[in-house]
Design a protein around this nucleic acid. Structure first.
Lengths: 109, 109
DNA sequence: CCGTATCCTTGCCGATACTG
DNA sequence: CAGTATCGGCAAGGATACGG
């Protein structure tokens, strides 16, 4: 995006706002990092790693990440149920941006 | 940040969350881009460029950006008043990250 | 011209309880 | 085990009016 697009187009249409909508929120990035680190993770494992997240929030956020194509959900039809989450290629391509944000934040805070 | 810090520390303390808190919000990035493009800009100029932003929101966000050290505010004590905003060095150092987010969003949306 | 004050709506997120 | 349902609190952001 360059500035001319701010003048002419709606902000909602910029690439920045789109990217921001995918990663902003209290837990999204932590979940992405969790999946990056452990590759394939079950629902309750994620919940344990994040510690403070509620069922409702984790459930909601995972569905958003899945809908946004960043996370893959694999369900095994068995009892008790088993569901595994992992990053898609699209999700992995976002990691360098998350890293640069971490780095900037640690240097400049 | 690496994953071990997710396990051991609070999310609130990560560099990512800090960076995110500086740039998330509906208009922050647009203001930063506006300042990047035009260098020194008056209050009402910013308001015109952003079009849909309200007085209250612009005022609030500018104060946050100033408090976070990303934006410099120069006030000229005259009537009618004149105030100019510009990026600090710290603010400029954030631009590459904003750019990469724009780029990713445009490629992947 | 450059804001503040007030009121209001909306959406995120947590707590808790329940289900296949 | 892996969720959904319901309720409620809190903060961001918009509309409008007023002030130095």
């Amino acid at each position: 995006m360059n500035f001319s697009s701010i003048e002419e187009a709606d902000l909602e249409q910029s690439g920045f706002s789109y990217t921001l909508s995918l990663i902003s929120g209290k837990y999204k990035m932590a979940i992405l990092y969790c999946l990056m680190e452990y590759k394939v993770v079950r629902y309750n494992e994620i919940k344990r790693y994040l510690k403070t997240i509620s069922h409702k929030t984790l459930s909601t956020v995972l569905k958003q990440l899945e809908a946004d194509g960043l996370v893959h959900r694999e369900e095994y039809p068995q009892i008790p149920p088993k569901v595994e989450y992992s990053l898609t290629e699209r999700g992995k391509s976002l990691i360098p941006i998350l890293d640069s944000m971490c780095l900037w934040g640690e240097k400049n805070r």
